Amino acid sequence: MPPNSRRIRVGGVLVPGLVDHHVHTDQIDLAALLAAGVTGVRDLGSPPESGLALATRSPHDPGLPHVVTAGPFLTAPGGYPADRAWAAEGSYREVRDTADAARAVAHLAARGAGLIKVALNADAGPVLGDAELRAVVGAAERAGLPVVAHAEGAGQAQKALLAGVGELAHTPWTHRLPDELIRAFAARTHWTSTLDIHGRGTDTAERMRAVDNLRRFHRMGGRVRYGTDLGNGPLPSGVNVRELEALSDAGLSATRILASIAVSAMDLAVLPGDPLTDPLMTSRVTAVVRAGRYMDVVQTHHTDAMRTRMGPVSAVVRTPCRAT
């Protein structure tokens, strides 16, 4: 430890920084999200001046969560989200053929994208053809970038799997997937949860299908990431308790829920109790260390606020607590 480091004693449990694996940075207040205890986000679709600029700035900015971004969606001409009012100019790029697919990926990689997002929403319009999708995946592999797919509509999840896409941006919710398909997904992919967008606290048919698909995916060994689709309608800023409850409904233990969200190697979160015994504990963040700076998280009934103690911190020491 450097000789001039400050030592801070906190009551509670230290975990890696908490990450929301599905947000849209042009639709949310990132400073408020950090104030609520989330130290990292994956931006799955935004204009370059939002996501890509923030990805460059955020690693060393203690006032923002750490941002990893896909930049704009890659989609078919006229495909989703071109028809959506919320899709700002530059938030999607139309891919016209296999050569254009390779160019699009190379351009995003050169600008600092940390992953590639493809839109496969057959319910909303045209989708990428098999050849174009494989070209995106191949170019991303050569660039060392994972590919995440928004798969919606009959056959789109399977199409993503067959093309080599490594992650779904949402747990499938439009259809109950057969066990043999879920088993193949579990062997090869991650799923980001986003269960609470289906009803936001109401047990809708879409939520029940998604929870059922995720339960079987998890039971078969599939790897789950906590994500909320923050920016998509009225969702709470911070760790979404309803998302955690839905993960628990899908059969994830407290340990697995923690593993799905507490993953940032560069930041820390302080929790008031043991998250290995309480699956909702990660929603009760009391402090974070972000880019070397310690910040108290003050939660109230109406809003979350953060007050920053002066100076960076090199080490945080917790008081003794029971571990399991």
Rank of each mutant, 00 (worst) to 15 (best):
H24I: 08
T25H: 05
D26N: 15
Q27E: 15
D29S: 13
L30Y: 10
A32G: 14
L33T: 14
L34T: 04
A35V: 06
V38Y: 12
T39N: 10
G40F: 08
L44V: 14
L44K: 01
G45R: 00
S46H: 01
P47T: 11
P48T: 12
P48E: 15
S50R: 09
G51N: 09
G51K: 04
L52W: 00
L52D: 12
A53W: 13
A55G: 12
T56S: 09
R57G: 09
R57W: 13
P59C: 06
V68A: 12
T69N: 05
A70W: 00
P72M: 07
P72F: 07
P77R: 02
G78Y: 08
G78R: 06
G79P: 01
P81Q: 05
P81W: 10
R84T: 09
R84V: 11
A85M: 09
A85P: 10
A88Q: 14
E89M: 03
G90T: 07
S91G: 03
S91E: 00
R93V: 06
V95A: 02
D97V: 07
D100E: 05
A102P: 01
A102C: 10
R103G: 02
A104P: 01
V105A: 04
A106S: 15
L108F: 03
A109E: 05
A110C: 06
R111P: 03
I116V: 11
V118E: 08
N121E: 09
G125L: 12
P126N: 04
V127L: 11
L128T: 15
G129E: 09
A131Q: 14
E132F: 02
L133F: 11
L133H: 13
A135I: 02
G138M: 03
E141F: 07
G144Y: 05
G144D: 08
P146S: 08
A149R: 00
H150P: 01
